[in-house]
Write a protein that binds this DNA or RNA. Structure first.
Length: 507
RNA sequence: GGCCCCAUCGACUAGUGGUUAGGUCACUUCCCUUUCAAGGAAGCGGGACGAGUUCGAAUCUCGUUGGGGUCACCA
């Protein structure tokens, strides 16, 4: 059977609430591979487990992919020529193909109850056997012991039933995986998997194979946890006589203790990382590198989505699991911030600032602090210091808001008895300064300090505290220039006022 | 436990028979510096183990050990 001659990959999550970072990486690899090959990237929602459905989860998946810049070419929302893209809307297809398998004696009905199966399983485990379906309902005509008449009877009585695939005995099932090479399984270790559940929904195994075939998926790129159920899928392709896609089982993302990355040991939802302030570029860059590298010679660590798209290849995907390491992610985030231009950063900062301004009053002119020029200046001074984009507003809020408090330890250390007087006097000097630029302010301060016989540091630190409330931050003189004369003077006077009765003696 | 996968610095990794085993994060030190960062320089630290093949093995083979995944009418 012909398979598409253009590459088609898919991301096929189940809508259980949020997008896992491992899922994001899988989606990314699928997207990158497809795009690199000039192919299509498809999103399919695997909602065959009615008990695990979460309201709105499917929409959320599309939203997250959109955020990540990995918008699918075909999806439930977008549509496409191979829809529907939601498995619960394709039930008739699975049923039809199941009937075909039954007719061809490659699958059979099973009327064993879950309780019954559970009991059999327990017994097998007790005997140290492999838990497997005992083929109680395998018909005589297929080599089993159940008379056709009994099956017919059960069928007519309408008692709940499932459909199971009949795994051939004594064969070796080969998987050719691009990442792992040839992997072989003895058919004796694969169970007669349920294909169609009692509620009429397919299991994952039937649904993936049918859909991947019908949607003409050429490459199945998914997590390694699927490797051991792949023989079932291979068998189904063979049953149907369909051409198999290329399989690529990517290594798992791990907790620090090397178990599969899980909720219990930290944040796993992409949404969690978005909330923390990570940007899509950094997150994508980071997960891309967990299991993939640009290969021979290249020591590039920082990639934009475009660069990943150009350089990605399945050949350079590794085999061993990778620990999700926050330190590196943080570093990558910072690198991405530093690579952005001041103008780009200004654009990114503005909406965050505007949001903040909804709930917070500022003493500064709004038009001024939201202007492109102002935000670019802030970006320039802060881009080496910000760990997240949002920190331009939060960490250095003094660019936009008058400080309410002053770092206590720093005040203790820097606020001397004569500080108030010196600050007031210097403020008066600044008032007359016509050219309020970093260099002019610096020159003025030097002159002032010399005249007063104090060290520059004795002024620099208190001024920073007065104006920003913090003991750290960008170059003081640039900070003053950006904030502007009016605000600087106001803040110095306010600080002198507020710190008047709290000299260094408070300790 | 059965089956399957995996195994290079603490973490992410380069490397495909001949390298002083390279890079990045983290950590330490130094430089720069009015603060905090950033940046620059240096340091720390590694092929799980044991056999074999070979003139030569992180690289190939086998075994051992360790870790992981999977064994549902969940995906």
């Amino acid at each position: 059977m012909a398979i598409s001659d253009i590459v088609r990959t898919r991301f096929a999550p189940s809508p259980t609430g949020y997008v896992h970072v491992g899922g994001l990486r899988t989606a990314l690899y699928n997207y990158l591979f497809a795009k690199k090959c000039g192919g299509k990237f498809i999103l399919r929602i695997e909602d065959t487990d009615q008990t695990r459905l979460v309201e709105g989860a499917a929409e959320n998946i599309e939203k997250v992919l959109e955020w990540a810049g990995l918008a699918p070419d075909e999806s439930p929302l977008r549509g496409g020529d191979f829809g529907p893209y939601t498995q619960s809307q394709r039930l008739h297809l699975y049923k039809r193909y199941c009937e075909q398998l039954i007719a061809e004696k490659k699958a059979y009905y099973c009327f064993s109850t879950p309780e019954e199966l559970e009991e059999v399983r327990k017994l097998q485990q007790k005997q140290g056997l492999q838990p497997k379906y005992n083929r109680k309902w395998l018909p005589e005509s297929m080599g089993g012991s159940m008379p056709e008449s009994k099956i017919k009877e059960a069928l007519e009585s309408g008692i709940p039933k499932v459909v199971r695939m009949k795994v051939p005995d004594g064969i070796t099932i080969k998987i050719d995986d691009v990442i792992r090479g040839v992997v072989e399984f003895d058919s004796a270790v694969v169970d007669d998997q349920v294909l169609l559940k009692a509620d009429g929904f397919p299991t994952y195994h039937l649904a993936v194979v049918v859909d991947d075939h019908l949607m003409q998926i050429t490459h199945v790129i998914r997590g390694e946890e699927w490797l051991s159920s792949t023989p079932k899928h291979v068998l189904l392709y063979d049953f149907f006589g369909w051409e198999k896609p290329v399989f690529a089982h990517v290594p798992l993302l791990l907790n620090p203790d090397r178990t599969k990355l899980s909720k219990r040991q930290g944040d796993v939802a992409v949404e969690d990382y978005i909330k923390k302030g990570f940007s899509r570029d950094a997150l994508l860059n980071f997960v891309a590198l967990l299991g993939w590298n640009p290969g021979s010679g290249s020591e590039q660590e920082i990639f934009t989505l475009d660069e990943l798209r150009e350089q990605f290849s399945l050949e350079h995907v590794g085999k061993s699991g990778a620990i999700f390491n926050l330190d590196k992610l943080q570093w990558i985030e910072e690198q991405h911030i530093r690579r952005k231009s001041d103008a780009e950063l200004a654009q990114a900062i503005r909406p965050i600032l505007e949001e903040e301004l909804k709930s917070r009053k500022t003493e500064m002119p709004i038009e001024k602090i939201t202007s492109d020029e102002y935000l670019r200046a802030v970006a320039k001074e802060m881009k080496e210091r910000a760990r997240f984009i949002k920190e331009f507003v939060t960490f250095s809020s003094y660019f936009f808001f008058e400080p309410e408090t002053y770092e206590e330890d720093a005040v203790k250390k820097r606020w001397k008895d004569h500080t108030n007087a010196l600050l007031s006097e210097f403020a008066a000097r600044l008032e007359t300064l016509s050219d309020f630029t970093a260099s002019a302010i610096e020159a003025e301060l030097k002159t002032f300090c010399e005249a007063k016989g104090v060290k520059t540091a004795e002024m620099v630190h208190p001024i920073r505290l007065a104006v920003s409330g913090a003991s750290f931050g960008p170059s003081l003189f640039h900070l003053l220039e950006i904030i502007g004369k009016e605000a600087v003077l106001r803040r110095i006077h306010r600080a002198v006022e507020r710190l008047k009765r709290e000299p260094a003696a408070t300790s």
